[in-house]
């Protein structure tokens, strides 16, 4: 058997914004794209304890301790955690570990919404997509989940999609971000 320790690899391989479009004006603004795919993701079919009030139902997201819990479909709660997937047995028998099934990206900054509105038809206005809102919708022509949870006062959006689309979606977001001097950075390890 192999003597190497298994390495977890993210589906996202590009690290630079590519900017395929013709760029005349100089980019202005601020947006940062992070690959958060290594975060653990557990799918529950009932509301995890302690979230009944904060994640009131479909369309809501909340932070709980160091976790993020959101719901974008009836009977589905996704729990994100910065820590690697829990040891065996600690997730409820009805829950499913989907860490490996999904890619997770984060878009943060004053131009995050301006970036996303190029590829996603959600209304990012504070009235309709405030911090604490979650939605599964079409992003860059694939189904993806958009969760807004601001960080240190900056608008911040987690984008979760099927793993195999991860590299594609990361490319689409970084392309959209180029206009705002967007850059891909290493994940800081916190949610």
């Amino acid at each position: 058997m192999a003597d190497r320790t298994p390495i977890f690899r993210s589906p996202v391989r590009r690290q630079d914004a590519r900017g395929r479009g013709t760029k005349t004006g100089a980019p202005v603004g601020s947006v940062v794209v992070e690959d958060v795919s290594t975060a653990s993701k557990v799918l529950h079919n009932e509301a995890p304890a302690g979230t009944e009030d904060t994640v009131a139902g479909v369309g809501h997201a909340a932070r709980l301790d160091e976790r993020i819990i959101y719901s974008v479909a009836p009977g589905e709660w996704l729990e994100l955690s910065a820590h690697s997937p829990k040891p065996d047995g600690s997730i409820s028998p009805t829950a499913i570990d989907v860490t490996h099934a999904r890619a997770l990206l984060r878009v943060t900054g004053t131009d995050a919404a301006n970036t996303l509105e190029k590829i996603c038809a959600l209304d990012f206005d504070n009235r309709f997509t405030p911090s604490g809102a979650a939605a599964r919708t079409s992003v860059a022509a694939i189904a993806a989940e958009v969760i807004r949870l601001d960080r240190d006062g900056s608008p911040s959006y987690l984008i979760c999609c099927s793993r195999s689309y991860g590299d594609y979606l990361h490319g689409a977001i970084t392309d959209a971000a180029t206009q705002f001097a967007g850059q891909s950075v290493e994940w800081d390890g916190s949610l």
Partner: peptide
């Protein structure tokens, strides 16, 4: 606009590219 034609890659794609496998388009994959 910019082309938004989703493509899907297997987790093993970096290997296939590294060794120069001949790609084939199979739906989005």
């Amino acid at each position: 606009g910019r082309m938004l034609e989703p493509v899907r890659h297997s987790p093993l794609q970096p290997y296939h590219e590294r060794v120069g496998a001949q790609p084939i388009v199979a739906g989005q994959w």
